[in-house]
Amino acid sequence: MLAVLATVLLASTPAVDPDLLAAEQAYQAAHYRDVLPSLARALSRPLAPAQQLRAYELMAFIHAAFDDAPAATEAFRRALGVDAGYRLQPDASPKLVGLLSEAVKLGPLAPALTPPERPALPPAPPPAPIYQRWYFWTAVGVALAAGAAGTVYALGSRVPKGTLGTGTLQ
């Protein structure tokens, strides 16, 4: 029943958050461990109230399924923060009813704030001058080595051995 309601609710919403939809599908498929991560991602973005309410409702259901009563109660309280008149379907399990009753008793909580926008990153430091780059000095070294090798080749290769041999000038 809840699933049908949720489907109708989400279907009536023009743009369903993809992560909320993923959470819904995981819940329907009883892949409960996949629900909470999708909900966390969905709730990190601004959601329409109906979708936000459904997200907290699903969150409460999953926490209840894992016997995490405090977390389920908190999720219900946040659902109540979205809609103070929120109530479970009549065929809801006594466990859920009890948790929601506890939430009502404790009072609603404002929906968790979505993560603040990340502050703008500080401007990237200006690129280091070319002479401070490792590849610059490597290139210089290679060029010098090549130049020296070229000179050696140029001169050394042109110094043949004479009939009297070779010698050195001190």
Binding site: V159, P160, T163, G167, T168, Q170
Partner: peptide
């Protein structure tokens, strides 16, 4: 020397 002229000699210096 045991062969006819000309003769050649290469000399190098590092100085």
């Amino acid at each position: 020397i045991a062969t006819a002229f000309p003769h050649t000699l290469s000399l190098t210096t590092d100085d």
